[in-house]
Design a protein around this nucleic acid. Structure first.
Lengths: 215, 215
DNA sequence: CCGTGCCTAACGATCGATCGATCGGCTTCT
DNA sequence: AGAAGCCGATCGATCGATCGTTAGGCACGG
């Protein structure tokens, strides 16, 4: 018997959500904002290399030449999205506090998953199209990414040191927790009978179990 | 303090492994096999749309026209890889047995992760470039994918029914277990101090904890 | 009256794909 | 055995389309 809910996952698309929402902290008005939003949708759907400058212009209802009045090159549009995505993600992780390793892990995983469920297109572009940037453009995002892993890793090490976590390997736990959260961006859609908060809460519970949290 | 092992993850590349291995069941000889292997490397690294047929031909040390003596179109090269990848993955899942839900879950997660660690390039292409195929070409892979999820889902439901699993939500557990395993393909490299078997074993343990397995 | 925003037009380069021709090797026929 | 014919593999050349990008001009608001 097939689980009804998983039927929605049977799609060829790289991403199921169609919500091109951007973080509220990013205020992009006028034509430039339009370009960024349509690029988010197209890059998430077809990839950076699979999207032409004319595809993007048509989606914005402008001519392709007009794009160059707002961005010096196609790559800079991607760089803008990758920057927004990584800053949003890292800000969420960094803001997650907690009084002890258990609550810290719960909060940081919640933030990690929430970002991927609330801004799935942004997460997919930031994660899967980073390779299309030049090394110089990609460097800031790589720093944020490494620091995000560091934050999770430190929480696990604290918990192990305090004896409240019991897990076979901290490095593999970081990859597992990060990985399962990142994948949420690919399958989450508002059509599913879960709110982002429910998913984040359940995934946080999964992470605590995975870490062997006591209590 | 940064975990030394995670330093290797700080890379812009879509995939860290450079091992273009294909499953031994796939015997591709001569120029056609060369094309498939080089395409695997290039599509994993730069994506389907980011790889031109001249890139591919140059990697094979042939002229671009020669490609069309072996494949009717660029898309068919990708279809070949996507097919191999999904068949390999599904065969691994389907072959995983077990006497009870606990051992079945352990075995299927081990198989799931092993495939992604042993054939990371193939997994990345099959997962992330599927959208570049026409719906007709993608359909067989989608069926295999859905059946793979069904296999995991059934094990979880069995375990819940027998009372040996205790988890908040079976659907979300499937997405979490699948997702963390899929992501292995993006970061695994033989340079890491883990064998694919060690990673698979630890991830299987994570999955059992996540499912609330007793014992 | 000058800047800003968008346009039309076009650039050279590259895209996926196709053409006819050539080569070596294998089979077939005498 | 040797000539004739076929065939898969590869080639150089080139197709029309599309690529990212640029130049120059027109319209409108302060």
């Amino acid at each position: 018997m097939t689980n009804d809910r998983s039927a929605v996952l049977d799609a060829q698309r790289r991403i199921l959500s169609e919500d091109v929402r951007l973080p509220p902290s990013v205020l992009l008005e006028g034509t430039r904002g339009r370009i960024v939003r349509e690029a988010l949708r197209l890059f998430a759907e077809k990839g950076f290399a699979g999207t032409s400058i004319r595809d993007l212009a048509q989606a914005c209802e402008i001519r392709s030449a007009t794009l160059y009045a707002h961005f010096p090159a196609k790559e800079q549009v991607l760089a803008e999205l990758v920057g927004i995505g990584h800053e949003q993600h890292h800000a969420g992780l960094a803001a997650a506090g907690g009084d002890d390793p258990v609550s810290r892990l719960r909060n940081i995983v919640t933030a990690h998953v929430l970002t991927h469920a609330e801004y799935p297109l942004l997460a997919v572009v930031a994660n899967n199209e980073l390779h299309a940037l030049s090394p110089e453009e990609a460097a800031p995002a790589l720093l944020l990414r490494a620091d995000g892993r560091r934050l999770i890793s430190e929480i696990l090490n604290e918990g192990i040191a305090e004896g409240v976590f019991d897990l076979p390997d901290a490095f593999l736990a970081v990859t597992a927790i990060s990985g399962m959260g990142m994948r949420v961006a690919n399958w989450y859609t508002p059509d599913l009978p879960y709110t982002p908060e429910e998913i984040a809460g359940t995934y946080a519970e999964f992470a605590l179990r995975l870490a062997g949290a006591r209590g």
